[in-house]
């Protein structure tokens, strides 16, 4: 068993455990914190898999911005907990389906897909962010710009949705 595999297993277990923690924690803040841990673990996987830019984006966007937003909303609403949130009687079909999905995907992954497992080329990996940027601003320029508009729309939408109408005001 190589050190790489041990690392993978530890990280994988951490990811699964944190996901399970998010899944089962009654308190929304805990759930959010478990999720942050999960995101961080996944970011490590990104690094291992030769995607440093994505890993950093993961940490900053997900672990930073998004989860902070979550926590912010949780705090804002003061609705951290819901009584009797999980009805254990009712979750059996969901669990069965979930296990079935896991089984199917694992079967798919191990029986149907054969990876070549090529070693990562260092040159490519090192030049990754530069090349990524080049690709992003040349080949994928149009989707990139559309993404920016999407973000703008989302921002405007969020503001419009949450805006409190003043009584007697003009809206």
């Amino acid at each position: 068993m190589t050190g790489e595999l041990i690392l993978f297993l530890i990280l994988a277990l951490t990811a699964i455990a944190s996901a399970a923690g998010m899944l089962l924690s009654r308190h929304a803040v805990y759930a959010a914190l478990y999720l942050v841990l999960n995101f961080a673990t996944v970011a490590v996987f990104y690094l291992i898999l030769g995607s440093p830019f994505i890993a950093l984006a993961q940490v900053s966007v997900y672990g930073g911005a998004i989860m902070v937003l979550f926590l912010f909303v949780i705090m804002l609403l003061g609705a951290e907990q819901i009584p009797a949130e999980i009805k254990w009687k009712n979750i059996l079909p969901a669990v069965i389906l979930g296990l079935a999905l896991v089984g199917q995907t694992l079967y798919l992954v191990f029986q149907k897909i054969a990876f070549s497992n090529l070693p990562l080329e260092n040159s490519v990996a090192e030049a990754n962010p530069t090349h990524l940027a080049k690709s992003l601003f040349s080949t994928y320029l149009l989707p990139f710009e559309i993404t920016s508009i999407l973000l703008l729309v989302a921002m405007v939408g969020a503001i419009v949705l949450t805006k409190q109408e003043k009584k007697g005001g003009r809206g």
């Binding site: 929304a28 999980i86 979930g98 999905l101």
Partner: peptide, 19 residues
């Protein structure tokens, strides 16, 4: 796949919309 399935399971079993 496991993480994906756990996410799906989370949607199915939780009532808290934030979670």
């Amino acid at each position: 796949a496991i993480l994906f399935s756990m996410g799906a399971l989370g949607i199915l079993i939780r009532r808290n919309s934030l979670i």
